[in-house]
């Protein structure tokens, strides 16, 4: 339809790639450059840390090249996205093995059967379990572990906080949300509703416990922000009708705090996401079988 499609010239995926690239730059600055200039890491770490996103991109591209598919959200995209979420303590060999396995499963099982399973969140949780049993589960870099520097609350919002390797910048997440909200194809309702309900539960809990410090420290959780802005609204794993989007986002926001209290604030949001995602797949399957019965 020629220029009738002008509104999607600059696609959502291109925007997501651009924003993830900014996160990589900031993650490199926080987790490699700053510790390096304070002599916590050697020079090789400056390059090693970039291997995570680059290998995610590379392995994803290889899968896309060998097994091409028509899905605009391809393995290259998922490879990069997954590499941003992992803890800094992840061994590069374990990571490479893991991401290859994950993308293999996506290529031959998940995308072929048209499952809506959020395999990035599932993969992240499985990796965390693996790291936990390998006793190398840690989100802090050496500088953060040393506790030599005391950061203010505002520093935390601007990225100096413990989180996934490239996801620590809350202000960048908010900027991304602002930019993505203007995209026709971005499901902006999901981060807004979810965060609203997450905040509500947080307020209620802090009020009940009379612990305002808890509220302030978790209000701007970088992991929650990143997952709600980048992972939860991904078209492939989220519902598309208005009612289901509302249900998905409200339940997601509502469950973040209980799961975070049960586990911790780095993984609670993933558990919540997996549960809501599974629930919707179940609902969808029930609806489809009902429609097929009618036909």
């Amino acid at each position: 339809m020629n220029k009738l499609h002008k509104i999607i010239r600059f696609s959502l995926i291109q925007k997501l790639y651009g924003l993830m690239f900014l996160f990589v730059i900031y993650g490199w600055y926080k987790n490699a450059y700053i510790p390096y200039i304070h002599h916590f890491y050697s020079f090789s770490h400056l390059l090693l840390i970039l291997l995570y996103p680059l290998s995610g991109l590379g392995i994803g591209s290889l899968f896309d090249f060998l097994f091409p598919n028509q899905n605009p959200f391809n393995n290259k995209f998922y490879g990069l996205l997954f590499s941003l979420l992992i803890p800094i303590s992840t061994n590069i060999c374990v990571y490479l093995l893991f991401i290859t396995l994950l993308l293999f499963l996506n290529t031959f099982l998940i995308s072929k059967r048209d499952w809506d399973l959020n395999f990035i969140a599932v993969g992240k949780i499985v990796l965390i379990f693996a790291l936990y049993f390998m006793k190398s589960y840690d989100y802090s870099n050496l500088l953060e572990k040393s506790q030599l520097f005391v950061y203010s609350y505002l520093d935390g919002i601007f990225g100096q906080t413990v989180s996934g390797i490239f996801t620590s910048n809350v202000s960048l997440s908010l900027l991304s949300l602002l930019l993505l909200s203007f995209d026709t194809y971005y499901k902006k309702e999901i981060p807004f509703y979810s965060y609203g309900f997450y905040l509500l539960t947080l307020f209620c809990y802090a009020f009940f416990k009379s612990d305002m410090n808890f509220l302030l420290s978790n209000m701007f959780s970088s992991t929650v922000f990143f997952v709600l802005i980048f992972l939860a609204p991904l078209s492939s794993f989220s519902p598309y009708s208005k009612k289901r989007i509302a249900f998905y986002s409200v339940l997601l926001g509502f469950l973040i705090l209980p799961f975070s209290l049960l586990t911790n604030f780095y993984e609670g949001v993933y558990f919540s996401l997996i549960l809501v995602n599974s629930l919707l797949i179940l609902l969808n399957n029930i609806q489809i079988s009902l429609i097929k019965q009618k036909i």
């Binding site: 020629n2 028509q70 899905n71 605009p72 959200f73 194809y185 499901k187 078209s235 598309y240 009708s241």
Partner: peptide, 20 residues
């Protein structure tokens, strides 16, 4: 009469815009 475009249909990305 429109010029042909080299544009192939891709897999549905479930954005839901057609519904809205």
């Amino acid at each position: 009469i429109m010029k042909k475009l080299k544009r192939k249909a891709k897999k549905c990305m479930k954005c839901g815009k057609c519904i809205s």
